[in-house]
Amino acid sequence: MEQETRLSESPSAVPGTVRPGGRTAKVRRAVLDATEDALAEAAFHTLNPDRIAAAAGVGKTTVYRRWGSPAGLVADLLRDMAEQSLPAADTGSLAGDLRANAELVLRTLTDPRMGAVFQAVIAAAACDEECARTLNGFYRTRLAEWAPVAARAAARGELPPDTDALELLRAVSAPLYYRFAVTREELTAADAERAVTAALAAAAAGAFAPRPAAGPGVD
């Protein structure tokens, strides 16, 4: 939630892994750039490893050996995007931090290039388990990177200390992704501001605090 990507942050590998160096790194960069270009121009189902190899200027055997399939290319692109993401905002207030998060999502999804890439990636995740797992990992990484905004807010007295940071952040970005991926409505700054306002109100009401377990005989 969060571009989350090359727009104002940029994308690269599973967190905690060592990036390859030298020619291997250059080949990976060329292939992933070609993959992003292809997704920006067309849908996932048109992604062809042979064409990606030609566009990247590398051998077809290299692409098939390392990435295996269109799903493998998309999965590695998502890992790349997660790696290259910029750190979360620190504006000095919870409202400012959540607004920065919402604005980042909005910029990403409304950008002609990156919006098309995310549409293709979401479509890929809907029909391929590997892509779905990697998309889930991408967003978990992004949420974790933004989670400190809740701890800082709690320290300032803006949030209950037991607020679930990930649920708070999901509440900000979920309405935007719903409009983008499900109802396919135009996204505006007003939508982002509304999501932030709603998330702040819900947090103040304790909606993201852990619920006590129900006792015996309690429905």
Rank of each mutant, 00 (worst) to 15 (best):
residue 2 E to C: 08
residue 5 T to C: 08
residue 9 E to Q: 09
residue 11 P to M: 12
residue 12 S to H: 09
residue 13 A to D: 14
residue 15 P to K: 07
residue 15 P to T: 12
residue 17 T to G: 11
residue 22 G to D: 09
residue 24 T to Y: 00
residue 24 T to M: 04
residue 26 K to W: 00
residue 28 R to D: 09
residue 29 R to G: 13
residue 31 V to I: 11
residue 31 V to R: 02
residue 31 V to W: 00
residue 32 L to V: 11
residue 38 A to S: 05
residue 39 L to Y: 00
residue 41 E to N: 04
residue 47 L to H: 00
residue 49 P to S: 13
residue 51 R to D: 15
residue 53 A to W: 03
residue 55 A to S: 10
residue 55 A to Q: 14
residue 56 A to N: 06
residue 58 V to N: 05
residue 60 K to F: 04
residue 61 T to Q: 09
residue 62 T to P: 01
residue 65 R to I: 05
residue 66 R to K: 13
residue 73 L to V: 04
residue 73 L to R: 02
residue 74 V to D: 11
residue 74 V to H: 03
residue 76 D to T: 15
residue 77 L to P: 03
residue 80 D to L: 05
residue 81 M to S: 03
residue 83 E to Y: 09
residue 88 A to R: 08
residue 88 A to G: 12
residue 89 A to V: 06
residue 89 A to E: 11
residue 92 G to F: 04
residue 98 L to S: 02
residue 103 E to S: 09
residue 105 V to M: 07
residue 106 L to N: 07
residue 108 T to V: 14
residue 108 T to D: 15
residue 109 L to Q: 13
residue 111 D to R: 02
residue 111 D to T: 03
residue 112 P to M: 04
residue 115 G to L: 11
residue 118 F to L: 11
residue 123 A to E: 15
residue 123 A to G: 14
residue 124 A to R: 03
residue 131 C to N: 12
residue 135 L to N: 09
residue 136 N to A: 13
residue 139 Y to E: 12
residue 141 T to Q: 05
residue 143 L to V: 07
residue 143 L to A: 11
residue 145 E to V: 12
residue 146 W to R: 11
residue 146 W to T: 05
residue 147 A to P: 09
residue 147 A to S: 13
residue 148 P to D: 02
residue 151 A to K: 12
residue 152 R to N: 05
residue 153 A to K: 10
residue 154 A to Y: 03
residue 156 R to W: 03
residue 158 E to W: 03
residue 159 L to D: 03
residue 159 L to M: 04
residue 160 P to E: 15
residue 164 D to E: 07
residue 168 L to V: 01
residue 168 L to N: 12
residue 168 L to H: 10
residue 175 P to L: 07
residue 175 P to G: 12
residue 184 R to T: 11
residue 185 E to P: 02
residue 190 A to Y: 01
residue 201 A to W: 00
residue 202 A to R: 15
residue 202 A to P: 03
residue 202 A to Y: 05
residue 206 G to S: 04
residue 207 A to S: 02
residue 209 A to N: 15
residue 210 P to N: 08
residue 211 R to V: 15
residue 211 R to G: 04
residue 214 A to T: 14
residue 215 G to M: 10
residue 218 V to H: 08
residue 218 V to I: 14
